[in-house]
Lab assay of single mutants.
Amino acid sequence: MAEQVALSRTQVCGILREELFQGDAFHQSDTHIFIIMGASGDLAKKKIYPTIWWLFRDGLLPENTFIVGYARSRLTVADIRKQSEPFFKATPEEKLKLEDFFARNSYVAGQYDDAASYQRLNSHMNALHLGSQANRLFYLALPPTVYEAVTKNIHESCMSQIGWNRIIVEKPFGRDLQSSDRLSNHISSLFREDQIYRIDHYLGKEMVQNLMVLRFANRIFGPIWNRDNIACVILTFKEPFGTEGRGGYFDEFGIIRDVMQNHLLQMLCLVAMEKPASTNSDDVRDEKVKVLKCISEVQANNVVLGQYVGNPDGEGEATKGYLDDPTVPRGSTTATFAAVVLYVENERWDGVPFILRCGKALNERKAEVRLQFHDVAGDIFHQQCKRNELVIRVQPNEAVYTKMMTKKPGMFFNPEESELDLTYGNRYKNVKLPDAYERLILDVFCGSQMHFVRSDELREAWRIFTPLLHQIELEKPKPIPYIYGSRGPTEADELMKRVGFQYEGTYKWVNP
């Protein structure tokens, strides 16, 4: 592979701008107003304001973009700056750019259920340069409990009458099928589907988006991507930290609602779906819905739930269990780990287990898709061969690698495990991989909904998990304890083995 010439960040961002501006969906010269509902909250200060700053800094926003914060707290732009700027990672050389960014910011205080507050917000936006005809993007960085009041008031008082209007809704989209349907029906009564952007930030990850290209742009994968060759698929999300004093919020939802029903299920769809007619948003989402419709409700015998306990040999936070978090209700049975087996009941995947695993306070930070292939028929190497695996590593250190057998150097035919490896950090030294939120917010500006969740996708996802969630809430089974920093409950490994996964433990990928 030829040595790549190092590029400056300015040059890299210039390439990104060229890609972005050559499309006809990006209205570079139009006025846009980006409204952050819930501007005083954690999500706004840690993710949304920093993301908008990065896009502005790199010249990736339309030229005439204004940012308006809205929340109940009586704040000023200076207050917003004070709480969000520490997350910007701005350099001293960017000081003038930073001043320009905050000059485009404003803030309006108001209630979430008060019509007069929204009329005041609308008047404020109209007073901005060309504000009355601007395109408006409303980001709901809010708890779902206020979605209905907020969307109703936005629709009645704050819509642009000339430009387009788009609304970005953060997960969780309800707690179960019934609450999700209620919320979807409410929002759909106010906005068209092409105006609604239900954001799952995992769909903005580079390697998640790469799944489609790997599958449908490489001839070698087509013939082997089926039940005849693939023994099982494992989708993993692991965090090495616990709730760390923020367990009160987590306890309301648990690990299945927080990660599995959305992030992991979306990745499953991209692995299992048929080739779409095109890369058009609805063509892709149509195929994802077909996959979900082929999955039956989760069966309790295919589920393992766990909850982390303190590690007596650990240090600091590792010595504390979930129930030691003062914000967690006493005696909570909320799971911090889950392993679930699903089956896609169609011709391509009949009988292939899709194993979804996620948890907190585990032994490493990792998100990946792992396809394990069947054993080689007619073994001539005296059971020395391990199964081939194709691994798409989402985070950290984005990579695609194939675990395969090669001859060990020497005189004899002794096979050993090795890999074919594409590590993004080595291959793409001159490429700026956008943060997931950067990519998705740019998608909203461009009107691309491919990486957002459609209402029928959402409904099918909740259909699969709601009976299990209701059973857990009714019966309150005690989750299996696992030690902070471990791989999780051993019962999860036993479940995976029972459905056909072979864990060798003899080879570990190392970032080159």
Rank of each mutant, 00 (worst) to 15 (best):
A6N: 15
L7S: 13
L7P: 10
S8V: 07
R9L: 08
R9C: 10
R9Q: 09
T10Q: 15
V12D: 11
G14S: 15
G14N: 15
L16G: 08
R17H: 12
E18H: 11
E19I: 14
E19T: 10
L20C: 07
F21D: 12
Q22H: 08
G23C: 11
G23I: 15
F26W: 12
F26H: 14
Q28M: 11
D30C: 14
T31H: 07
T31M: 12
T31P: 14
H32D: 08
I33H: 08
F34L: 08
I36P: 01
A39N: 02
A39I: 00
A39W: 03
A39F: 05
G41P: 04
K45S: 11
K45L: 07
K46R: 14
K46F: 03
K47S: 01
I48N: 00
P50A: 07
P50Q: 08
T51F: 07
T51Y: 06
I52Q: 04
R57F: 01
D58H: 11
D58G: 07
D58Q: 09
G59T: 04
L61P: 00
N64V: 06
T65S: 10
F66T: 08
I67Q: 03
A71T: 03
L75R: 10
V77M: 11
D79R: 09
I80S: 06
K82Y: 12
K82A: 13
S84W: 08
E85P: 03
P86V: 13
P86A: 13
F88L: 15
K89R: 15
K89E: 15
P92F: 12
P92R: 11
E93Y: 12
E94Q: 12
K95Q: 13
L96Y: 15
K97E: 09
L98G: 00
E99Q: 15
F101G: 01
F101M: 00
F102K: 03
R104W: 06
N105C: 15
S106Y: 15
Y107N: 03
V108Y: 10
V108P: 04
A109E: 12
G110A: 08
A115G: 08
Y118P: 04
Y118V: 08
Q119S: 14
Q119A: 13
Q119G: 08
N122Q: 14
H124G: 08
A127D: 14
H129L: 14
H129N: 15
H129Q: 14
L130N: 14
G131I: 07
G131V: 09
S132M: 15
S132I: 10
Q133H: 13
A134R: 14
A134G: 12
N135T: 07
L137T: 10
L137W: 05
Y139H: 03
L140P: 04
P143I: 10
T145K: 05
T145M: 07
V146L: 11
V146P: 06
E148K: 11
A149H: 14
V150Q: 02
N153G: 13
N153V: 07
I154Y: 02
H155C: 11
E156H: 14
S160I: 07
Q161N: 10
W164A: 06
N165P: 03
N165E: 06
R166S: 05
I168N: 02
V169I: 13
K171A: 00
K171T: 03
F173L: 08
F173G: 00
R175F: 11
L177K: 10
S180V: 04
D181E: 13
L183M: 07
L183N: 01
S184G: 08
S184V: 14
N185F: 11
H186W: 09
L190H: 13
F191M: 10
F191Q: 03
R192Y: 13
R192S: 11
E193G: 00
E193W: 02
I196H: 01
Y197M: 00
R198N: 00
R198S: 00
I199G: 08
H201M: 02
Y202T: 02
L203M: 03
K205N: 00
E206T: 06
M207T: 03
V208R: 00
Q209C: 09
Q209L: 04
L211E: 01
M212A: 04
A217Q: 06
N218K: 00
N218W: 01
N218H: 03
N218Y: 01
I224G: 07
N226W: 05
N226D: 12
R227Q: 09
I230L: 11
C232R: 00
V233F: 04
I234V: 14
L235H: 03
T236Q: 08
K238W: 00
K238M: 02
E239P: 03
F241E: 04
T243C: 14
G245E: 08
G245S: 10
R246T: 00
R246K: 00
G248K: 05
Y249Q: 04
D251H: 04
E252N: 13
F253E: 02
F253T: 04
G254R: 01
G254E: 01
I255Q: 06
